[in-house]
Design a protein around this nucleic acid. Structure first.
Length: 304
DNA sequence: TCACGTCAAGCAGAT
DNA sequence: ATCTGCTTGACGTGA
């Protein structure tokens, strides 16, 4: 098991997600920003290793306008040595990497332009993982997309579109349930026909308990991951109730987290902690496991 | 230095 | 009709 956090490290005084406005686009600005972002990414990864965090999501803002038509610069070639260096650090320290394209990546969109932009965005993310030289255990995660008042047709459109994707995109691509359109059962259905591994986001575990048996779903999710995909990944976030409504918590609820870990039984996962205070929660989660004898049977990856 | 309007992009649900 | 949230608020103008 590895515990990780997404994109931003609050303890460091640098950012790997610096960007700028489209109207300020220039080759010089682009190079400067990417250089800064890559330098900071390296610092974050070093921080993580020093704190025994071996799971990290790289920000989609690493290359500003990475998939935008305005991009007329071969950043892949210009920065290939920097990527190689960072990739070697990742591999030497057994860091698991994921990326999560944003809400504008809608593979099953009924708008052809949106579909094309989505493929470009997937290619952009794939380029980064390829430049880092990572294997199939690195993952690019999206949700299924839009429903457009016809869920079955939208699921079929997703499947058909996925099957047309280039092999080098499929290498990393996985899907995740979302909170309102496509639930974990929908993702498992899609996986049956495409063999896409499924990430299970358990964010509504407490505020919106699912009807299906949690253990049964875990088993089905695990089966979507082949050995070369690495350990199955779960996304975890704490929620709390304010005035009767579920809200994302600002910090981790350690008791809830421990119960969640116990509920996994003997199944091993890598867990992405999606909480606003980032590495703080990840470190608290790691310490909670290390300091709790009931959880000590877990093989928490902590080599330095 | 800081407040705050705006920012590449889509979609769904709430107000 | 407009606003909000989403993988993450950050940029940048103007006072």
């Amino acid at each position: 098991m590895k515990i990780g956090y997404p994109c931003i490290n609050l303890a460091l005084d640098c950012k790997s997600n610096s960007t700028f406005r489209l109207k300020n686009y220039s080759k010089e600005r682009l190079i400067q920003t990417i250089t800064n972002n890559l330098n900071c990414l390296e610092k974050i990864l070093e921080f993580n290793v020093n704190h025994r965090i071996f799971f990290f999501r790289i920000t989609s803002d690493l290359i500003p306008f990475g998939s935008h038509p305005v991009m007329d610069f071969n950043w892949q070639d210009y920065f290939k040595e920097e990527f190689k260096t960072i990739g070697n650090y990742i591999k030497n320290n057994s860091i698991r990497i994921t990326m999560h394209p944003g809400q504008y990546t809608v593979l099953n969109s009924i708008n052809n332009r949106v579909f094309k932009n989505s493929v470009d965005e997937l290619i952009y993310h794939t380029d980064i993982l390829d430049l880092l030289g990572l294997d199939k255990t690195a993952k690019i995660i999206t949700h299924v997309g839009g429903v457009y008042d016809d869920k079955e047709a939208s699921i079929n459109r997703f499947i058909n579109r996925y099957l047309t994707l280039d092999k080098r995109i499929k290498k990393y691509y996985v899907i995740e349930n979302d909170d309102k359109s496509f639930n974990i059962e929908d993702c498992l259905t899609i996986s049956e026909q495409t063999e896409i591994p499924v990430i299970f986001d358990i964010y509504h575990h407490e505020c919106n308990p699912m009807k299906e048996n949690f253990q049964d779903i875990l088993k089905k999710v695990i089966r979507t991951w082949k050995p070369e995909d690495g350990l199955p990944i779960l996304h975890y976030s704490s929620e709390h109730i304010i005035k009767g409504k579920c809200r994302h918590a600002d910090s981790i609820n350690i008791n809830h987290f421990k119960k969640f870990i116990q509920s996994l039984g003997d199944n091993d996962f890598d867990i992405m902690i999606e909480i606003k205070n980032k590495e703080v929660s990840a470190l608290q989660a790691i310490n909670a496991i290390l300091n709790d004898k009931r959880l000590s049977k877990l093989l928490l990856y902590q080599e330095i």
